[in-house]
């Protein structure tokens, strides 16, 4: 028989992060919000902390000089080229799964970006772009006069 016990409760508590993650995955599956998420390259993750958004994208093996980031109002565009290997004569591919070529992706943020405060960092093949919200776009507190 099913008897709720403390032990069971604990087990349930352990699975909470997993359930939350499942919920996130499902939300992601059903609410792509007009974006075609699967064909856009690079895939991005967006994190948020204190009103600053952090876009992360996996771009292995691309020189930071070959990555362009531009910001206009609330749209961030990441573009670049992934160079192909230069094979000399007599050298041939046995297997080619990494795709060379150009890419471009625009991301529309739900706020205006402070273009001057944008910082980008590229390390270990992962691009990090932090986007602070423009000062004039921040919510204003309105004082009520007595």
């Amino acid at each position: 028989m099913f008897t709720p016990s403390f032990w069971r409760m604990k087990r349930f508590a352990d699975s909470v992060p997993e359930i939350l993650r499942l919920q996130q995955e499902l939300n992601r599956l059903f609410s792509t919000a007009g974006q075609s998420t699967t064909t856009d390259y690079p895939a991005i993750n967006i994190w948020e902390k204190d009103g600053v958004a952090l876009i992360r994208a996996e771009l292995p093996g691309i020189d930071p000089e070959n990555i362009d980031i531009s910001v206009t109002d609330n749209t961030v565009t990441i573009s670049g080229t992934k160079k192909a290997q230069d094979l000399k004569e007599g050298e041939n591919y046995l297997r080619q799964e990494r795709i060379p070529g150009g890419f471009q992706r625009s991301i529309q943020m739900p706020f205006r970006v402070d273009a001057k405060g944008v910082e980008a960092k590229y390390e270990k093949g992962v691009l990090n772009v932090s986007l602070p919200r423009a000062q004039e776009d921040l919510p204003k507190k309105i004082k009520i006069n007595a």
């Binding site: 290997q85 000399k88 050298e91 591919y93 046995l94 297997r95 799964e97 992962v126």
Partner: peptide, 22 residues
Amino acid sequence: PRVDIYETKEAIFLIADMPGVD
């Protein structure tokens, strides 16, 4: 990881995309 493998006269090169590793 996605890999490219190519062959030269002296060696076989394997290149793997593994973003996030060092």
